[in-house]
Computed example of a mutant assay.
Amino acid sequence: MFQPTYPIRTARLVLRPVTVDDLDDVYAFQRRPDVVRWMLGAEPRTREQSLASVLAMAGEDAWHAEGDCLTVAAVTDAGVIGLVELVWRSQLDRTAELGFVFHPDHGGRGLATEAATALLAWGFTEFGLHRVYGRCHARNAASARMIARLGMRQEARHVESYLFRGEWADRLVFAILAHEWRAATGTSQGGTRR
């Protein structure tokens, strides 16, 4: 089992595993059409659907095997303002995929970038990832900007590569390698757990 030492503290946030007590905060953004607009197959959630989501995420506090998702709640004095996840995509290639969702009321202050940066730091320095990538709908400009702020370069634009709400959509793919991460952050060689 591989997991961060919780809580992960940043300048303005505490990152920790999701708990059932987070339901009200998570439901506050999962029910919003503007939040789920770019999420594949997602519609605004009912409270019951958010409860099921929170219960599932509460079990995502560590990696046990390839394919596992590690999800952390980004917490301020206002409560849970967003979620960041790393999905372990390949043990052999030491690759993970980054995902995130934040309440729009807390946007524009760099909090999502701060949270994602902290989780990436764990992945590269503690777990020993080689590459992390992020994907988004080509029209999701806010997510593309946020991913770029993390130092990821755009590697591809997959034209009409998936069905999104009944229409073919383009997907942008961004990535960063461990040595690029270390150079950008001034971090030394990471761990080699896997």
Results as ranks from 00 to 15, higher is better:
20 V>Q: 15
76 T>E: 10
119 L>F: 01
61 D>R: 09
61 D>Y: 09
57 M>W: 01
166 G>R: 12
50 S>W: 02
129 L>M: 14
55 L>I: 10
51 L>N: 07
53 S>Y: 11
37 R>H: 07
100 F>L: 09
69 C>L: 15
162 Y>R: 12
165 R>W: 03
106 H>R: 00
76 T>L: 13
19 T>K: 04
137 H>A: 12
190 G>Q: 03
83 L>C: 03
61 D>F: 14
159 V>Y: 14
134 G>R: 06
113 T>L: 04
41 G>T: 06
179 H>Q: 14
164 F>G: 04
133 Y>I: 09
178 A>P: 02
150 L>M: 00
20 V>K: 13
113 T>N: 07
163 L>N: 14
53 S>T: 06
136 C>N: 13
64 H>T: 08
158 H>P: 00
144 A>V: 06
50 S>E: 04
10 T>W: 03
183 A>S: 05
60 E>M: 08
113 T>P: 04
4 P>C: 09
144 A>W: 04
38 W>H: 08
24 D>K: 00
172 L>W: 09
91 Q>F: 03
121 A>Y: 02
136 C>I: 01
19 T>E: 06
124 F>H: 15
50 S>C: 02
21 D>V: 03
79 G>K: 01
132 V>R: 13
20 V>G: 09
111 L>A: 04
121 A>I: 01
130 H>T: 11
172 L>P: 03
128 G>E: 11
90 S>P: 05
83 L>N: 06
145 R>F: 02
89 R>M: 12
191 G>M: 07
75 V>P: 06
172 L>R: 11
124 F>P: 13
56 A>K: 08
8 I>H: 11
175 A>S: 14
92 L>A: 15
134 G>V: 08
49 Q>M: 12
98 L>G: 05
10 T>K: 03
183 A>C: 01
174 F>H: 09
153 R>D: 06
47 R>E: 01
136 C>S: 09
153 R>Y: 02
5 T>E: 13
